[in-house]
């Protein structure tokens, strides 16, 4: 008995030493000296949306494909809520040592115009863009409308009754539904959820009548025949739903709205470190396992380098600034 309790005592002591040892190693590598030897420890990738949505899946696949090029593991951390403001603000405020990378999406260029956050794209140093996806109008398979036109006609006859689920107030899918309503003159009831996945779940349960999320986020349910996509809000058809027409083809003229996903680090991250990360992530984005993943999951692969991404974000920010003030969403208090 005495022997056993001694044994356990030493076992605990061992665990303790191990724990202390590990934490010690972490604190030394966090010091600023290690710029040239970056990276020396695992990198965290903050995903500002609920696990299970398109952004989360993309981040996990990209992290997986990038690890070999970076030489360190990349841990994905979900920080959902506030249309992504929670996670992105945390990403912007992270220590600028390159060990915290954030995945950002189109909302980054919208939140400030919406008056929902102080956050702007200027608080980040872009690494690169990897994906672009349009909004798609998806409804329950047994809904009484089969085309975009019929949907609009139904909404005209039932003003304010059609419930459209979105990924959070001021999210891109909310803007998509708002701009659809504004440009066609219909009235919709917009219901915010904490991300696209819960909105789709709610549509499956019949609690909302439609969602305006990307094709990838509804594809498994559409293939199973539970949901149907009426149209995509882009210039070209989606490559995963080739038989679904664009709004323009249906004779409904709306501004193309869609989401994109890119990677950023805090503004003050040293250029050398950011350059290493850009290299690794863009190489990862070209890996076959990542492009296969994007194809299998119906996500639009679109790669832009750090500079191109910066210009693209500037343009988007200007564009959404106009739409949001047009739609009078900026007064959202």
């Amino acid at each position: 008995m005495n022997f056993l309790s001694n044994y356990f005592y030493f076992f605990c002591l061992g665990v303790l030493l191990l724990v202390v040892g590990c934490s010690g190693e972490e604190s030394t590598s966090a010091s600023k000296e290690g710029v040239s030897s970056f990276p020396e420890k695992p990198v965290t990738l903050i995903v500002p949306s609920a696990a299970g949505g398109g952004t989360d899946a993309t981040a996990r696949a990209l992290a997986d494909a990038t690890e070999d090029h970076l030489g360190e593991s990349i841990g994905v951390e979900n920080k959902e809520g506030g249309s992504g403001a929670i996670g992105m603000t945390q990403g912007a405020n992270a220590t600028p040592d390159g060990y915290t990378v954030s995945m950002v999406f189109v909302e980054l260029t919208m939140l400030n115009h919406l008056g929902m956050s102080e956050l702007t794209s200027d608080q980040f140093k872009p690494l690169g863009l990897v994906n672009l996806d349009p909004a798609a109008l998806t409804v329950s398979a047994d809904a009484p409308y089969d085309t975009v036109e019929e949907f609009i006609k139904y909404a005209e006859e039932h003003p304010g009754e059609v419930k459209v689920g979105n990924a959070g107030t001021g999210s891109i899918w909310h803007i998509a539904a708002e701009s659809l309503a504004k440009e066609t003159g219909i009235k919709l009831n917009h219901v915010p959820f904490e991300g696209a996945a819960p909105a789709v779940t709610s549509l499956m349960g019949g609690h909302v009548d439609a969602v305006t999320v990307s094709p990838a986020e509804v594809l498994p349910q559409v293939e199973a025949g539970d949901l149907k996509t009426l149209g995509v809000m882009s210039k070209d058809r989606s490559n995963i739903m080739e038989d679904v027409p664009t709004f323009e083809e249906e004779g409904v003229d709306v501004t193309p709205v869609g989401t994109w996903r890119g990677l950023v680090v805090p503004k003050d991250t040293p250029d050398e470190v950011a350059g290493k990360l850009e290299d690794a992530f863009l190489k990862g984005a070209e890996e076959e396992e990542f492009t296969e993943f994007m194809k299998n999951n119906g996500l639009g692969l679109e790669i832009k380098s750090s500079d191109e991404f910066q210009q693209f974000m500037n343009k988007e920010s200007e564009f959404y600034g106009e739409i949001i003030s047009d739609l009078d969403l900026g007064s959202n208090e």
Partner: peptide
Amino acid sequence: LGIPGDAVTAVLLGALMVQGIQPGP
């Protein structure tokens, strides 16, 4: 349904998708 109900199953969803298995109907 391909819908994760909590944080653990969300990680499992990622694991399944990386393996090329798409949960859902």
